[in-house]
Computed example of a mutant assay.
Amino acid sequence: MGDLWFEAKKCTEDFAIAVRDSDTLFQIFRICRSPKGDVYWNLLAQPDFKAHYSYHASGHSFLKTLGRRMFPTKERQPPTAKFKGTEMLLTSAIRAGDGRAINRPCEISQFTDIMEIPEYVLAAEPFGYQFSVELAEPGADSFYSTWPHAEIIQERRFEGQVPHIVCTLYKAHPEPVNK
């Protein structure tokens, strides 16, 4: 089961974000780092749209779907060993039932690593959570771990290369949360 255009890009790191529902692990997102240092976040909910966010080695980043850029290109720091602080890629909603709705079994052996989210965690919040992906220098806190309105449900830092890729499942609150 191919992932759109990722086959053409030989990933040096390839991560799955997956929901465990009973005995089945469903892939809902895929994050890939190319040999050039580009980072791609593939949104799998509507495969025909080929929706993805890319953060290129040059520092250019954008969201693309249906072959078109959705917003102007952003100029950011290049994702090299000299990367400082954090840079947010994108945030997406995630709810109970999304894994089965996308219906893409996750083949663990195809990935460098995975972030597994139990379905029962998602089911605990009827309106869903937010899921964000950031690039971060080693030792830097993710944005949402320091934002007073975020309740961190689960966070995973993939540390294979610099900058690290940080994935955060969180609930936003109108009032600050005691941390």
Rank of each mutant, 00 (worst) to 15 (best):
D14E: 08
A124S: 15
P118N: 06
H173Q: 13
A81K: 15
R104Y: 04
F158G: 00
G67P: 10
K74V: 07
P47V: 01
E87Q: 12
P148F: 10
C167Y: 00
I108Q: 11
A124V: 07
R76A: 04
Y40H: 14
Q110P: 01
I153P: 08
E159F: 00
H164D: 09
S22F: 06
T86P: 03
A8N: 12
H149L: 11
R69L: 02
S22E: 14
A123V: 12
R20P: 03
E159D: 09
S61G: 12
D98I: 02
L169K: 08
N178F: 12
T168M: 00
S34A: 11
G37A: 05
H149A: 06
K36H: 13
P47E: 05
S58L: 08
A96Q: 13
Q154C: 00
G37L: 03
A81G: 09
P47A: 06
T112S: 15
P35V: 13
A124P: 14
A136R: 14
A124T: 11
P163V: 06
L4A: 15
D21G: 00
I94S: 05
N42K: 06
R104C: 03
V133G: 07
T80C: 01
G85H: 10
S145A: 11
Y129C: 10
V19G: 04
P78D: 05
M70T: 13
W41P: 01
I102A: 02
L25V: 07
K10R: 13
T73P: 00
M115A: 09
P163G: 03
T65G: 09
L135C: 10
F26A: 08
P47M: 01
H164N: 04
M115G: 04
P78H: 09
R95A: 07
T24L: 00
V162A: 01
G128N: 02
R69Q: 14
N103L: 01
C11P: 14
M115R: 04
G160R: 10
S92E: 13
Q154I: 03
A51K: 07
G85V: 10
